[in-house]
Design a protein around this nucleic acid. Structure first.
Lengths: 147, 147
DNA sequence: TATTGTTATACTCTATAACTATA
DNA sequence: TATAGTTATAGAGTATAACAATA
């Protein structure tokens, strides 16, 4: 007969806990750059595509517009982006990365690879690669903003 | 030549994001029971072992003692546990599950299996099982409280 | 009227520090 | 003095609601 799986071994519980840990390590790693985890999605989106309105950013990242305002304020203080008033609709502001922003993103990306390596250090390399892939699949399946 | 992996595809970023999602689904699922995700570790620990002091609980779960006080208050309101003053050291309180607490844990465990199934629904069954196992390994590797 | 961005406010989760009662 | 538990307070992170400028 099957043993009952403890609640703390469920995927929901483990993902929640490991998510906390990953967020902490991520934050610690990015701190020297003046960045926090949530800034990364913005940098990534702006680097990948053309300038975007703040509302568009909010929808793509999956936060409310008031949160986007805060994040952009912080990134602007770092000199990582510009807000440009849209001339055809003066309510909108188009946000775009500065060269400084591109540099920050590149550094953050390098740091993130190091953090990943540390997080996965004690796993079998094959398992680690499989995990990385499966988490990506899961993000897509749930249409996580930014995926 | 290798393409640069976008920062948002890193394990750190994905775990952080999926952790948020899992916490949300977990919380929604448990709400009808009056429980929240963080209560589950307490219920699980108390069900598995003998009565425990609050400080011991805090260490095992990985939160500070003030958080334990809150969680225990809430679980006590639900009738899920008792605090029993230790007669040999009257500063300590031993916490133990009531029958009601055992029932709640059983229900929470059933609910969690349903939440897991939903979270993993769009994954290949083999991949889902592998993910579940690997997350457990990762929790052990990082000595996550409760593992 | 509706929409974009902004501010003000509130709620959750967690931690630190000050306090109490016991030891 | 030191420790177990408690309370008060503060800091992230996020959301909702009210508001200003523009459409």
């Amino acid at each position: 007969m099957a043993l009952e799986e403890p609640l703390t071994d469920s995927v929901a519980f483990l993902l929640a806990k490991l998510g906390q840990l990953a967020t902490l390590r991520f934050a610690e790693g990015l701190a020297p750059l003046g960045l926090r985890p949530r800034h990364c999605a913005v940098l990534g989106l702006l680097a990948a595509g053309p300038a975007m309105s703040q509302l568009e950013l909010a929808n793509r990242i999956g936060v409310t517009s008031s949160v986007v305002v805060e994040m952009l304020d912080e990134l602007q203080v770092l000199g990582a982006l510009r807000r440009i008033r849209d001339t055809t609709d003066r309510r909108r502001q188009l946000t775009e990365l500065t060269p400084r922003g591109t540099t920050l993103l590149r550094r953050a990306t390098r740091l993130t690879r190091k953090i990943d390596a540390e997080l996965l250090a004690q796993l079998d390399p094959g398992r680690a690669a499989e995990l990385s892939f499966t988490l990506g699949e899961l993000a897509k399946a749930h249409e996580l903003p930014g995926h």
